[in-house]
């Protein structure tokens, strides 16, 4: 009697222990995660906090040297940075003053600082073996052929698309097609859905994307599932992202380029190694894992052959039946 009671309570205890250890594990996991994100924020160089205490907030305060009072002012919204995006970007380890003048450490910033030339991507990455895989020089050459550069010249810098604060090499690091597409199209949208940015470079009003692409059915779905550059650049096999934005007359309009078995998307969007390795089971996996289904591009070997088999069996059955009907008439 007692024994069984002990056993029962031991059992209960065991279960409790298991449950609580499970809970404990969960908590650990949770803590682990939150610590990770804390670590991520900490990876921002502490010196940057001096700048970010103003440059991440809607308002800022500073010591007015004239009135000798603390002044609180509104920030310029365009000069507010997103700390998390910065921390996720490729240049997260930088101090602000690696790129910007160290004279910015005083406020009001010296007006002359506006004239300071900032480094371009090529200034730092050009000719550097370490980044050879990205082919910066080749990208620059391609970019210089693009309509953007042809029409706007030097004032159309790489940074217009690749914000140096936030840039991530998403097409390499992400294995989710949707994420790559979103990140990539957002770059184009910074101007093509924002008139003031557009007019920094052009005197005309920006054309409305939805009207220009009126011929494209399921437009929203397409913009979510293909990159703008898929239709607006030519695929260069030696380059993972082609940078030559073609004149609009040369943009891709032929649906079947994508909606077919040898879809061009395989050559461009899906060509990144990480995506390919994810799809070791064949194209099926890529598509399954990436929430997209392109009409015509997906053809399953077994399903195709199975349906052809059934089709032929049906025809054969009918033929035999016809022959019998004629013979036995």
């Amino acid at each position: 009697m007692l024994k069984s009671k002990i056993r029962a309570s031991a059992f209960l205890f065991n279960r409790l222990a298991m449950q609580s250890s499970f809970l404990f594990l969960l908590i650990l996991l949770f803590l682990g995660f939150s610590q990770k994100s804390q670590a991520q924020e900490k990876s921002l160089t502490p010196e940057n906090d001096k700048c970010l205490k103003c440059h991440t907030h809607q308002t800022f305060t500073f010591q007015n040297t004239l009135t000798k009072k603390e002044d609180k002012r509104m920030s310029n919204p365009l000069y507010i940075l997103d700390k998390n995006h910065f921390a996720a970007g490729v240049h997260a380890k930088f101090k602000c003053t690696d790129c910007h003048s160290s004279a910015y450490s005083t406020y009001p910033h010296n007006a002359e600082l506006k004239l300071e030339p900032l480094s371009t991507c090529l200034d730092c990455h050009g000719g550097d073996e370490k980044y050879a895989a990205y082919q910066f020089e080749k990208i620059e050459k391609e970019f210089q052929k693009s309509v953007h550069f042809q029409k706007s010249g030097e004032s159309f810098t790489c940074s217009k698309c690749h914000n140096q604060h936030y840039y991530q090499a998403k097409s390499r690091t992400s294995s989710v097609v949707g994420e790559i597409i979103g990140f990539s199209n957002e770059m184009c949208m910074t101007c093509h859905s924002n008139n003031s940015k557009f007019q920094l470079l052009s005197d005309t009003l920006k054309p409305a994307l939805s009207q220009i692409h009126g011929w494209l059915p399921n437009q929203e779905l397409h913009f979510k599932n293909v990159r703008c550059i898929e239709c607006h650049t030519q695929v260069v096999d030696s380059l993972s992202v082609s940078h030559n934005i073609l004149p609009k007359e040369k943009a891709l309009k032929n649906c079947v380029e994508c909606h077919s078995k040898n879809s061009m998307l395989v050559a461009s969007l899906y060509k990144y190694k990480n995506l390919q390795s994810r799809s070791e089971g064949g194209k099926l996996n890529t598509i399954i894992a990436n929430k997209s289904y392109v009409i015509g591009a997906y053809q399953n070997f077994w399903l195709n052959n199975f349906s052809i088999f059934i089709f032929i069996m049906a025809l054969a059955g009918i033929c035999i039946h016809v022959i019998l009907r004629i013979i036995k008439k």
Binding site: V256, E257, K261, G296
Partner: peptide
């Protein structure tokens, strides 16, 4: 026509087929 669409060959133009 849509399932087996092909840039070089098609009974009906893809866009027309979709519509």
């Amino acid at each position: 026509n849509m399932q087996f669409s092909n840039p070089k060959f098609g009974l009906v133009n893809f866009e027309l087929a979709v519509n």
